[in-house]
Write a protein that binds this DNA or RNA. Structure first.
Lengths: 111, 111
DNA sequence: ACAATACTGAAGCGTTTACTTAACTATTGC
DNA sequence: GCAATAGTTAAGTAAACGCTTCAGTATTGT
């Protein structure tokens, strides 16, 4: 369910916006309320809530409301899924380069 | 220059689109021409070129034209930069959890 | 009870995105 | 030289985005 392409899509989409990455960055240092997330951002609370809803839909952030404050925190599993996608492609490319290197080394030996 | 926030922005933006991720996926298995990249995609060549230009601007893909064919390949350094951003935030969060665990363990000892 | 706080939701609006088509420029093969 | 191939560029368009404002709902403090 974490490798569901639709979920991956939502995650990368969520990470594409600088404001949302800033929110993730803030949350990486610890949980925060909506207002605390909004504080460093030059936009209305309402806009922040909209970003937050996207982050939550993407699975990157989980929230829970106690009384009137919504507390947000990162879900590291989701972050790991995005990380993994990139890592796989990079490794695939690098393995290819290695094989190519081996091949070139071998053909040089055949004098 | 790889940690330039503007460049990071372009990278995540580039990765946000499914078609572009599919192109990166294809390129992770080896270099390809524009037409080869376009083949599995249900859109015009023109659209593919536009995506490709974005990928190149983001630094994720490098291309070189020989004769009339443009050959594309991944730049793993750029992939690593995106990977790194995510990894740092995830680790920061997980370290926080560890410290919290230690704290709870200690306070339990104080009977 | 009343005011302040902490969000939430809907409507609207200008900008950006992801395409399309169509016209064009190089190369390459015959 | 001529046609086919490979890619590029510009213009247009519909839909998605990132906001704003404003009006509303709970909850909390006095």
């Amino acid at each position: 369910m974490l490798h569901d392409p639709a979920q991956l899509d939502l995650m990368f989409q969520a990470l594409a916006d600088p404001a949302r990455r800033q929110m993730v960055d803030r949350l990486s240092r610890g949980p925060a309320s909506v207002s605390q997330l909004a504080e460093p951002l030059a936009m209305s609370l309402s806009a922040v809530v909209q970003h937050l809803n996207l982050l939550e839909a993407s699975g990157l952030v989980r929230t829970q409301k106690v009384g009137r404050v919504r507390t947000c925190q990162i879900d590291p599993k989701a972050l790991r899924a995005a990380e993994h996608w990139i890592n796989e492609r990079r490794l695939s490319w690098e393995r290819r380069l290695d094989r190519l290197g081996d091949f070139l080394a071998e053909t040089r030996d055949e004098t």
